[in-house]
Simulated assay, not measured.
Amino acid sequence: MTNADLSDFRTPGRGHGVLDIFTRRYLLKVLVKKDVTTRYRNSIFGWLWSYAKPAAQFLVYYLVMGRIIGLDRGIDNFPVYLFSGIVVVNLFNESFSNATTSIVSNKALVKKIYLPRELFPVATVIVAFVHFLPQVAILIAVALLTGWIPSMLGLVLAVLGMLLIVLFSTGLGLFFGALNVAFRDAQNFVEIIRTFATWTAPVLYSWTMLADKAPAWLLNIYMSNPLTVAVEFFHQGFWFSTSTGAQANPPTDALLPPPLLPIYAVVAFAIAIGTIIIGQLVFRRFERNFAQDL
């Protein structure tokens, strides 16, 4: 009796993880299109809400934190500095939050058919990026009005900042998205992280304020945070050229980029990639019970 060759078969429902999204691009496109088209369905203002939310955030932070509390002291062109940080935090918060709830939100599909489950968090991150683009358009317009001159280095840094946030939020989304299926407390924990996100990056203040008060080890941890590096990349891309620090002979009190930013950037990208690896491992561990837990 001959044994059948089973080398071409594999256990149903098991794929190659995140790598499967490259072979399921059509499904990914369908999920993204569905989320984008249904986001503002039956809404009077539609896509205008993508502009209204960041505009409201900017006004509140600028008036309260900048003008009333006075955190704008020592920061030239504070509105552009502030808004370039807000849009980065918004991208992170929306990507992270939506990816965490993506499996539960699509439980009907998860329970009925098999498709790579990683498609759901990845699709929500892409949708968040699509909604992030109108905010970048506003930022560019405001920066141009305040004297911003685009440079190749600045644009490259801005693109790297976007990539860093997408990688980091995808990794966290895989991790917490899987946990959220088995333990719904994960979603509440994510909300706490989002609350602190604005304050764990130099958005409402400058990095030098922490450098003046924190020990070196704490500053290094803070500056290696992917969110911090992404915000600083956006500052260099859209704000720095409009500040006095960009002059040939900057004043002694000018706000300059962190001197070790390239090193911090390498560490931040390593953290983001490591987060994706850990997130994928945890996702694969919990994935086998998704249908039962949902």
Score class of each variant (00 low, 15 high):
Val88Pro: 14
Ala248Leu: 14
Ala216Lys: 13
Leu27Gln: 10
Val181Cys: 05
Leu115Val: 10
Asp185His: 13
Tyr51Val: 15
Asp35Lys: 05
Ser84His: 03
Leu179Cys: 10
Gln247Tyr: 01
Ala230Gln: 08
Val282Tyr: 11
Lys34His: 09
Ala201Thr: 07
Tyr81Ser: 12
Val125Asp: 02
Phe78Tyr: 15
Asn42Ala: 11
Trp207Asp: 08
Gln57Trp: 10
Gln187Phe: 15
Leu91Pro: 07
Leu31Met: 11
Asn90Arg: 11
Leu82Ser: 12
Asn90His: 09
Thr100Glu: 03
Val87Gly: 10
Ser43Leu: 06
Leu204Thr: 05
Thr101Trp: 04
Val266Cys: 11
Ala52Trp: 10
Ser97Val: 07
Ala272Asp: 05
Arg25Met: 14
Ala270Asn: 03
Leu255Thr: 10
Asn98Cys: 05
Ile165Trp: 02
Ala291Thr: 15
Thr11His: 09
Ser224Tyr: 00
Glu94Trp: 06
Gln57Ala: 09
Tyr205Asn: 09
Gly274Ser: 07
Gln135Glu: 13
Gly173Gln: 07
Val18Trp: 01
Asp212Ile: 11
Phe58Tyr: 06
Thr242Leu: 05
Ser151Tyr: 09
Ile263Cys: 02
Ile277Gln: 06
Gly245Lys: 01
Val166Phe: 10
Tyr61Pro: 03
Ser169Asp: 04
Thr170Ile: 10
Phe129Ile: 10
Asp5Met: 06
Gly171Ser: 11
Tyr205Asp: 11
Ser224Val: 03
Leu27Tyr: 00
Ser105Pro: 12
Thr37Ala: 12
Ile276Gln: 04
Arg73Ala: 15
Val136Ile: 14
Phe240Ser: 03
Ser7Pro: 00
Gln236Arg: 08
Arg184Trp: 10
Gly46Phe: 14
Ile140Asn: 02
Met1His: 13
Phe92Ala: 04
Leu27Phe: 01
Leu260Ser: 14
Val80Trp: 13
Thr146Pro: 02
Ile44Ala: 10
Leu172Trp: 12
Ala268Ile: 01
Pro250Gly: 06
Ser243Asn: 06
Ile113Trp: 04
Ile44Asn: 02
Ser50Thr: 15
Gly70Leu: 12
Phe58Cys: 04
Asn98Pro: 00
Leu115Trp: 00
Thr37Trp: 00
Val166Asp: 02
Val30His: 06
Val87Tyr: 03
Val104Met: 12
Thr170Ser: 15
Ile221Gly: 03
Glu191Arg: 12
Leu172Tyr: 11
Glu118Arg: 05
Ala123Arg: 03
Ile276Leu: 12
Gly66Gln: 11
Ile44Gln: 04
Leu63Arg: 01
Asp20Ser: 08
Pro250Ile: 12
Ala52Gly: 04
Gly46Asp: 12
Phe240Lys: 03
Trp217Asn: 08
His16Ala: 14
Ala108Tyr: 03
Gly70Thr: 04
Ala108Trp: 02
Ala158Asn: 03
Ile165Glu: 09
Asp76Leu: 08
Ala291Met: 05
Leu115Lys: 05
Val36Phe: 13
Leu109Cys: 06
Leu174Gln: 06
Glu287Trp: 09
Leu91Tyr: 02
Leu119Ala: 12
Leu31Cys: 11
Ile44Lys: 01
Leu27Ala: 13
Tyr61Ser: 07
Leu172Arg: 06
Trp239Cys: 00
Asn225Pro: 00
Gly74Val: 13
Asn180Phe: 11
Asp5Pro: 03
Val122Asp: 00
Asn188Glu: 14
Phe78Pro: 15
Glu191Ile: 13
Val64Asp: 04
Arg117Gln: 12
Gly171His: 02
Ala230Trp: 05
Ala178Arg: 01
